[in-house]
Design a protein around this nucleic acid. Structure first.
Length: 271
DNA sequence: ATGGTCGGCAACCGA
């Protein structure tokens, strides 16, 4: 069975529901993971997704900030929400796809929205950066999050860290910019290593090649400047590593009318 | 070297 999975920081699902519909009609993912829905669960545009063929929805939203959702053509066996740093923020939701989705072996899917971390990369003066570092440490130490043995697990989301040199437009100029400081990139890679995760983008695209999924709203001409960062990720466990058939970043979406600053990132699996 | 733009929601906060 072919499974197409997309992750997208939509920056308000209600404001951009027509862009989501446009993407869905073109890409037809089986499962779509959204971040920054900025929408309480009772205001999520459920009916629109159902009309688009996505009957199964797992929500962890809150008013005004953050918020994650998984919308799917396939039914879930279970849904789970975790909290981090003892805060009520809506930054995680996971589902299991299994018997009800006619899968021979279950797949557990985690959808994350890691804190952005503010502007100053010093935890002693910037509580938002301190929170981000603590969040990454908790992800690393969260054993139930990480795959064991033959587990088929996927972790996606806006992880708000561009870990490698060519995940940013200028490694040298970004070293003191939140999202690419050494303390963050080391902590994100520690989550990856401790959890025995594989980064699908970098399994497919050499480390020497620039790859971005986000471009700032502040650029006069985002495409001409092309000062992007790779903040959105798809990680898989060892058991799924060999099942990846395609990987794409829908860069065009950054040029759509009233876009999100992030674009959809998609992986296709033979599961 | 600095400031540049968004969205939510109604003055700024978070990104």
């Amino acid at each position: 069975m072919r499974l197409t999975l997309t992750t997208w920081n939509i920056n308000s699902v209600r404001l951009r529901i027509e862009l989501v519909a446009k993407f869905i009609k073109a890409a037809r993912p089986d499962v779509l993971c959204l971040q920054e829905t900025k929408c309480p669960d009772d205001a999520f545009p459920l009916k629109r997704f159902k009309r688009l063929g996505y009957e199964h929805v797992a929500l962890n939203g809150q008013k005004g900030y953050h918020g994650v959702a998984i919308v799917s053509k396939l039914p879930f066996d279970t849904t789970d929400i975790r909290t981090f740093c003892d805060r009520p923020d809506s930054r995680h939701i996971s589902v299991a796809l299994g018997e009800r989705a006619s899968l021979a072996a279950p797949i557990v899917l985690h959808n994350f929205y890691v804190p952005a971390g503010g502007d100053i990369p010093d935890p002693s003066v910037n509580p938002k950066f301190e929170h981000k570092l603590q969040f990454l440490d908790e992800m690393r130490d969260c054993a139930p999050l990480h795959p064991n043995g033959d587990d088929r697990h996927i972790l996606v989301g806006d992880l708000n860290v561009a870990p490698h040199e060519h995940d940013v437009w200028s490694h040298r100029q970004m070293l003191k910019i939140v999202s690419h400081t050494p303390v963050e990139t080391e902590k994100l890679l520690a989550v990856q290593t401790c959890g025995r995760w594989y980064d699908v983008a970098r399994e497919r695209i050499p480390l020497s090649e620039k790859v971005y999924t986000w471009w700032s709203y502040r650029a006069a001409d985002w495409a001409a400047a092309d000062r992007g960062r790779r903040l959105d990720h798809i990680w898989v466990s060892e058991a799924l590593r060999g099942t990846v058939r395609d990987f794409r970043i829908t860069r065009d979406a950054r040029g759509w009318e009233r876009p999100s600053d992030h674009v959809p990132v998609t992986a296709v699996f033979d599961v």
